[in-house]
Simulated scan of single mutants.
Amino acid sequence: MLISTLSYYTTELYKEFAAYTTEKLHELGLNFGQMYFIIYVGKHPECTPSELTSALKLDWGHSQRSVAKLAENGFLIKEKKSGRSYRLTLTSLGKQAFDVCHQVLFDWDATKLTGLTNEEQQLLLNLLCKISIQKV
């Protein structure tokens, strides 16, 4: 039986991507979920935890535990600005992790898209962008 639904292929690609990413980031002491925190803070230095949580569409508690773990492991700095608010920045280790995380994205794309022509790759990405919730 051939399964031809977007949800099926999305789920299969997600599982493959999560496994690939976990394997590549394990050396750094990062997991799949932490990659998104590193990338967001790397692209938005001095963001607030609230901005990060909202942008990544996460539960507040999960976000705070993840930020605390990344800070504890030396990837992030939680710099207090005033009162209880603080800003997030990457440490030098976090910046190295940011570069690796970005490379993992490009490497996975390269492995998955090898059977497509450049035109097919661009068409696929354009169509996915068109139906995605978050417009690029």
Rank of each mutant, 00 (worst) to 15 (best):
R84M: 10
D59M: 07
F75Y: 08
C47P: 00
Q34I: 12
E79W: 05
G29K: 03
I38T: 10
T89P: 00
G74L: 10
E46R: 10
Y86C: 08
K43R: 13
A68P: 03
K80H: 09
K80N: 14
E51T: 12
L70H: 03
E16P: 00
I77S: 13
R87W: 09
L70I: 06
K81D: 12
T53L: 02
Y36V: 10
E23W: 01
V67T: 14
L90E: 09
L70F: 08
E79T: 10
G29R: 02
V67M: 05
S63Y: 06
L90H: 12
K69A: 12
E51R: 07
R84K: 15
D59Q: 10
V67S: 05
E72Q: 15
S63Q: 06
F75Q: 02
T22K: 11
T48P: 03
S82F: 13
R84G: 10
L88P: 00
A68W: 09
E46L: 11
S63R: 06
G33S: 07
T21G: 05
L88K: 00
Y86F: 15
R84T: 09
I39Y: 08
E27P: 06
S85N: 15
A18H: 02
Y20V: 00
S82V: 08
L76T: 02
S63T: 09
Q34D: 07
W60Q: 12
H44D: 02
F37N: 02
W60Y: 11
E51W: 04
V41I: 10
W60V: 14
Y86A: 11
G61N: 09
R87V: 10
A71S: 14
T21M: 03
E72T: 13
E72S: 13
G33C: 07
E51H: 04
Q64F: 11
L30A: 08
G29M: 00
E16L: 00
S82K: 14
E51V: 02
E72V: 07
T91R: 13
N73W: 04
T53I: 11
R65S: 05
R84P: 05
R84W: 09
S63P: 07
A19T: 12
R65D: 06
G29Q: 03
H62Y: 15
A68K: 15
S50K: 13
E27A: 15
G42D: 04
V41D: 08
E16V: 00
S54V: 11
Y40A: 01
L88G: 00
S50T: 10
G42H: 01
R65A: 09
T21S: 13
P49N: 05
W60L: 11
A18G: 04
I38S: 04
K78T: 13
F32A: 05
L76P: 06
E51D: 11
M35C: 08
Q34Y: 04
S85D: 13
S63D: 08
W60K: 11
I77L: 15
G42S: 04
L76I: 04
G42R: 01
L56V: 13
G74W: 09
L88A: 00
Q34H: 06
C47A: 01
T21K: 03
A68H: 11
T22H: 12
N73G: 03
N31T: 08
E79Q: 15
P49M: 02
T91Y: 15
